[in-house]
Design a protein around this nucleic acid. Structure first.
Lengths: 222, 222
DNA sequence: GCAAAAGTGTTGGAGATACACCCATGA
DNA sequence: TCATGGGTGTATCTCCAACACTTTTGC
């Protein structure tokens, strides 16, 4: 319709909450801001949506640029657009969240000129903008989805044991889970299958290794 | 960051899927487009996000302008931003959906210079842009939420009978529901209470009238 | 042989489902 | 008195939660 002058200072961006499980904690990736506003503060990674770039494509690109990982689970979360969330200009940001399997979270150092780091969800530094709110919403969504979908499977590497899968659930829910019931639940979903291989580690019985039947697919259950 | 020239032709809008129950059907509001592209075609109501306008405020305003209703349930649905979804320019649209109680869906004629109309979800005309996809997603969300929240209560007027509430559920789910079980379920939620009044209509026993204990509040259950 | 994690079955209870009859009213 | 929708209780079943012991290995 009408083209108003404020279009000049409008920006559309994506912000990404990148979760992983590290060291038996739920962690997420933050970058230190190089420019004003909030210069020097930690913030969610993200990028400006390009002229011919789709929203998810923008998030994927930002994810790849910051972490070097690609092909991981990525889902649109919510769109934040309060006037004043950025003190300098009007920014509308489409938030995504991503789940990165623990076995490929080496950060690509070259492509990350800014400081980048993993932080435990429970011990986040002060965040720029309204990123704290975004993180809270992403966390809430993750916990909810855990109970009615197979989303947690996206944290697993190519091969994993049932105990590892259980640990992921326990970490996200922040509570213990009954081993027998968990195994019945996980196997009944018919989303994983044994590889036939075993993993030996430590002085105890080796564990059966499983793999996802449909990698990348998240099933809504119940 | 960098300010690129394409900002000139970027627009951020909201689109709203306005549901109501009319004549025992799930219907939604469409407007006929006055301008190109898709001139003369039916589309979702919506508006351009103003310079100092919040996203939800924009949706609320558009809703009010098109229907004259306000204070109804309104929730952000998803953000659509594929390049090319509008053939003339880049448009990023934050979709919302609204639920309007049947007892106040008189359209404000004065404020609706364009043609406006209610359409049964099952018999929609061809829609402009990707609005068909937006409607499908909104419908899916509504059906899902029906089973794990009290969202359907937002379709009810100030006073309503349990049979009316049941009818709303049956219409949205497109299937019959057991009367006894439905009543047990609805009452156990403790979100509605009897007014003490009765409604007589037809040659049968009058029905108890109920009201929402917390109007506007949608409870997540289970 | 012992420590440590892997692996497995059964039972009881809560909540959902299925189902049929009486009640109050208007015509 | 009959047709119409309003209103209620109970038996059954299914699924979830709780719970303890045996197996295999490394040291």
């Amino acid at each position: 319709m009408t083209q108003s002058p404020w279009d000049r200072s409008l920006a559309v961006t994506t912000d990404i909450v990148i979760f992983t499980i590290r060291d038996r904690k739920l962690e997420l990736l933050l970058v230190r801001r190089a420019a004003a506003p909030f210069q020097g503060q930690w913030a969610l990674p993200g990028g400006v949506v390009g002229p011919d770039e789709g929203l998810k494509a923008c998030a994927t690109r930002a994810l790849d640029e910051q972490t070097g990982v690609s092909g991981v689970y990525l889902e649109q979360l919510y769109t934040f657009g309060d006037p004043g969330r950025d003190p300098l200009r009007r920014v509308i940001s489409i938030a995504y969240y991503a789940l990165v399997p623990s076995d490929r979270l080496e950060l690509r150092a070259s492509a990350a000129p800014q400081a980048v780091g993993w932080f435990a969800l429970e011990q986040l530094p002060p965040l720029a903008f309204d990123h704290c709110e975004i993180v809270a919403l992403a966390h809430h969504r993750l916990v909810s989805k855990l109970t009615y979908s197979t989303i947690a499977f996206q944290f697993m590497g190519e091969k994993f044991t049932l105990s590892e899968l259980q640990a992921v659930h326990e970490i996200i829910l922040a509570q213990r889970v009954d081993k027998r019931n968990f195994r019945k639940w996980a196997l009944a979903l018919e989303q994983i299958e044994p590889t036939g291989e075993e993993r030996r580690d430590g002085k105890h019985r080796p564990a059966q290794l499983y793999r996802l039947k449909f990698p990348g697919r998240v099933e809504i259950i119940r």
